[in-house]
């Protein structure tokens, strides 16, 4: 049975070719592949862990952000309220101030008017006294010349005075 007897030539070539393929694969093939696969596994595990960590962080950040937003909204409402109040106060203050101002000015104007009026009256009185004195002087002067004419002048002056006064 030639099938069952090993052949030396084939054995020789088997040693050579298997030796070569074993050398190549054991040196450059399998270790490199297995190392790369290990590294990849490690990388994937790490990436998964990192992703989980990131997710956790994101969740806390989200919560924080929500809290911050809620706070900010509250603050805004508060600020708006305050601003409204302030505006109202400012407006009412302005109104009050304006009114007071007007009042003061009015009083001042009135007193000034009064003052001017008094002054004018005093002036007029003085004038009248002067005129009266002049008239009186003229009358006295005329009397010495013409009684009749004197009488007419006094009448005339009186008429004038009355007219003026009324």
């Amino acid at each position: 049975m030639s099938l069952l007897t090993p052949d030396l030539g084939l054995l020789f070539w088997m040693c050579v070719s298997f030796g070569i393929v074993f050398f190549i694969l054991a040196k450059f093939g399998f270790p490199a592949i297995l190392k790369a696969v290990d590294e990849r596994t490690e990388y994937i595990n790490k990436a998964l862990e990192e992703a989980e960590e990131a997710e956790r962080k994101l969740a806390t950040i989200n919560k924080q952000a929500e809290a911050i937003i809620g706070k900010a909204e509250e603050e805004r409402a508060k600020l708006l309220n305050e601003a409204g109040e302030l505006r109202n106060r400012i407006i009412s203050d302005a109104h009050e101030k304006a009114e007071a101002d007007i009042r003061i000015r009015l009083t001042k104007a009135r007193s000034e008017i009064e003052e001017v009026k008094q002054k004018a009256l005093t002036d007029i009185r003085g004038e009248i006294a002067d005129i009266s004195l002049k008239i009186a002087g003229k009358v006295v002067d005329e009397e010495l010349k013409n009684d009749k004419k004197q009488q007419e002048l006094i009448d005339h002056l009186l008429k004038e005075e009355i007219y003026y006064k009324s």
Binding site: S17, V21, L25, G29, A32
Partner: peptide, 16 residues
């Protein structure tokens, strides 16, 4: 044998 050795080396080295 040579052919198979070549095939094995080529496929595994291409993976490497």
């Amino acid at each position: 044998l040579f052919i198979s050795v070549f095939i094995i080396s080529a496929s595994i080295m291409s993976l490497a």
